[in-house]
């Protein structure tokens, strides 16, 4: 469970990659090149990067629609991710999923899902399949605190605990379900406290500290992998931008946002790397510089890719399309 120096540097690089990727995505959005919604993960990077680092390659991830960071942390190709955001054929979902539906099953990344809480049930289904097929797999299910008041959360946690399914429930508690503060939507504002109602062990952690996240996730994954049933982690975090690109943010003060920005997980890990003598200021700048170069190439690739051809409309919709229907008429 030790985080060696290389691992810490690699995590730092991943967080910077996510940050720069999303900043570029926001620009594309403002340029009108990204349609629909765009939900940024900025400020929450330590949760996804720290937790996903605790997984093995055969493990699965099912997540919500604030999913760019999770996909990048799992190692999906940033070029194909940005192309997906722009709705291009080279995107990971063929340009038909967009920001909220990033997926690459070859990497065990089953996707972002657009229905709040609906994917929690899918994660439990994947865990059931892993148990049934006797595969050594853990499913990491990531969701926000807003979805914990939805029926799916309840049904999924009960079944997972009852059948001792291999799921790590990772709640990113960023304090707001869109514009609704957690205390206004939940009489028990701690999601970890809800786990006792299902007999599931749980822990509440500082999600801005990546070492804390990694250690908690490693413990949870080990518990789940040993067949003892699910585990719940509540990672306290904060999203710096609005809920989506069109959020006027009337529900929180600028002071509050500024206070949390002081705990920026990238800033914190950078300071840690410096104070431990792992990297100096120049080293950190070099990473930033390298990542910016990568993002430039990513942006060019995405922007120059083509939209899906009209003939491809029916592709990627069903696993086994009923092609014979075309000739049936």
């Amino acid at each position: 469970m030790d985080l060696n120096q290389d691992r810490l540097v690699s995590m730092y690089r991943q967080m910077v990659l996510i940050r720069r990727f999303e900043e570029r995505a926001a620009d594309f959005y403002r340029e009108g090149k990204i349609g629909g919604f765009l939900h940024l993960y900025i400020g929450e990077e330590a949760v996804g990067v720290g937790a996903i680092a605790a997984l093995e390659p055969q493990d699965y991830i099912v997540t919500h629609y604030r999913d760019h960071g999770h996909a990048l942390a799992r190692g999906l190709d940033p070029k194909r991710l940005m192309a997906e955001l722009l709705g291009r054929a080279t995107g990971v979902s063929g340009g038909k999923g967009g920001s909220m539906h990033l997926a690459d099953v070859s990497k065990g990344f089953w996707g972002g899902y657009g229905i709040v809480g609906g994917h929690i049930a899918l994660a439990v289904g994947l865990a059931l399949s892993a148990q049934y097929l006797d595969e050594n797999r853990v499913v990491l299910c990531i969701f926000g605190e807003g979805s914990t008041n939805i029926g799916y959360f309840h049904e999924a946690l009960n079944l997972a605990s009852l059948w001792k399914l291999p799921v790590v429930f990772l709640c990113e508690n960023n304090l707001y379900g869109m514009g609704t503060a957690v205390e206004r939507a939940s009489a028990v504002p701690s999601v970890a406290a809800k786990a006792c109602a299902y007999n599931i062990p749980a822990t509440r952690i500082d999600g801005m500290n990546i070492s804390t996240v990694y250690e908690a996730a490693a413990l949870a994954v080990a518990h789940v992998r040993s067949g003892q049933g699910p585990y719940l982690i509540e990672a306290m975090c904060y999203r710096f931008p609005g809920h989506s690109m069109g959020d006027p943010e009337r529900y929180r003060s600028k002071d509050e946002v500024d206070r949390y920005r002081e705990q920026d997980p990238i800033l914190m890990l950078g300071k840690q790397l410096e104070s431990q003598g792992i990297l100096d200021e120049g080293g950190l700048e070099q990473i930033d510089h390298d990542v910016s170069k990568v993002i430039e190439a990513v942006a060019v690739f995405a922007d120059q890719s083509h939209a899906p051809a009209p003939e491809a409309l029916h592709e990627h919709v069903y696993a086994h399309p009923l092609n014979h229907r075309e000739g049936a008429a």
Partner: peptide
């Protein structure tokens, strides 16, 4: 075990 129970119990408590 139904979702309706969960949503109802939470809402009543809040």
């Amino acid at each position: 075990s139904t979702g309706d129970f969960h949503a109802a119990a939470n809402f009543a408590a809040v």
